[in-house]
C-alpha cells in the first residue's frame, strides 16, 4: 500500500525522484485496483497543491509544464494496475486551441490540472475548427467547451466557434470557457463566452463551479 500522504506531498513538491520511487515500489507489490485508485487520487491531490502554489507565485509556468509531464509519467505507471477502474468523473470538457493558432502549452497545462480535478477531457489539439468543436461536443455530451489561444486573432476564432455552437443548437447546453493571453472581460463579452481566464488553476475552479 502506498503512503498516500507522502505521495501527495512528493507530487506537490515536484520531487520527481521520490514520486517515481514511491510508485515503482507500489506497483511492484501487486496492489489491488482499489489501492491503485487511491494512489491515483493521491497524485491528483498533489496536483491541486501545485495549482495552489502557482496561484501564490511560488511556482510559475515552467513548473506547471513540468508538473504536467510528471503527472503523465505517474499515471502511466499506475494505469496497468488500475485494471480498467477509473476515477469518478465529475464532468466532460471538450478542449482545443482555436483555428489559426498552434500554441498549446497553456491548453496542456489546463488539461493536466482539470483532469486531476476529475474531469474527462476530450483534447482536439491545435488549430481546431469550429465544426470540430461542435461535432465533439455533440458526440460526447460535453458540459464545458474550453477554447485556448495566444494570438490576438484567436479571439475572432473563439467567436466563430461560439456562433457555430449556437447554430448547432448546443449553446444552451454547454458552458464556454476561453483562456490565453488575449482574453479579458471585454473579449469574453464579444466572444459570447460564459467565462474567461489567463490562469489555468483559476480555470479549473470555474469549471468545478459549473458542475456542482
Amino acid at each position: 500500500m502506498v503512503n498516500v500522504q507522502l505521495l501527495t506531498q512528493a507530487v506537490g513538491e515536484l520531487d520527481e525522484d521520490r514520486v517515481m520511487a514511491l510508485l515503482t515500489e507500489f506497483v511492484a507489490a501487486m496492489p489491488t485496483a482499489e489501492e491503485a485508485l487511491s494512489a491515483l487520487n493521491a497524485c491528483q491531490q498533489g496536483m491541486n497543491a501545485v495549482g495552489e502554489l502557482y496561484e501564490t507565485g511560488e511556482y510559475f509556468v515552467g513548473d506547471l509544464i513540468f508538473a504536467g509531464e510528471l503527472l503523465t509519467k505517474a499515471v502511466d505507471l499506475i494505469k496497468p494496475v488500475l485494471r480498467g477502474e477509473g476515477a469518478a468523473t465529475i464532468g466532460k470538457i471538450v478542449l482545443g486551441t482555436v483555428r489559426g493558432d498552434i500554441h498549446d502549452i497553456g491548453k496542456n497545462i489546463f488539461k493536466s490540472l482539470v483532469e486531476s480535478a476529475g474531469f474527462e477531457v476530450y483534447d482536439l489539439g491545435v488549430d481546431t475548427s469550429p465544426e470540430a468543436f461542435v461535432a465533439k461536443a455533440r458526440e460526447v455530451g460535453a458540459d464545458v467547451v474550453g477554447m485556448s489561444g495566444v494570438l490576438n486573432l484567436a479571439t475572432a476564432a473563439m467567436k466563430n466557434t461560439v456562433d457555430a455552437l449556437k447554430a448547432a443548437g448546443l449553446r444552451n447546453g454547454v458552458k464556454v470557457l476561453i483562456g490565453g493571453n488575449p482574453v479579458n472581460s471585454e473579449v469574453c463579452r464579444n466572444v459570447g463566452a460564459d467565462a474567461f481566464t489567463t490562469n489555468a488553476a483559476q480555470g479549473v475552479k470555474i469549471c468545478q463551479g459549473w458542475v456542482k
Binding site: L14, E16, V61, G62, D63, I65, F66, E69, I105
Partner: peptide, 11 residues
C-alpha cells in the same frame, strides 16, 4: 524550447 527548458530547470 519551452518544454525542454521547463524540464531542465527541475531535472
Amino acid at each position: 524550447g519551452i518544454k525542454g527548458l521547463s524540464l531542465d530547470l527541475r531535472q
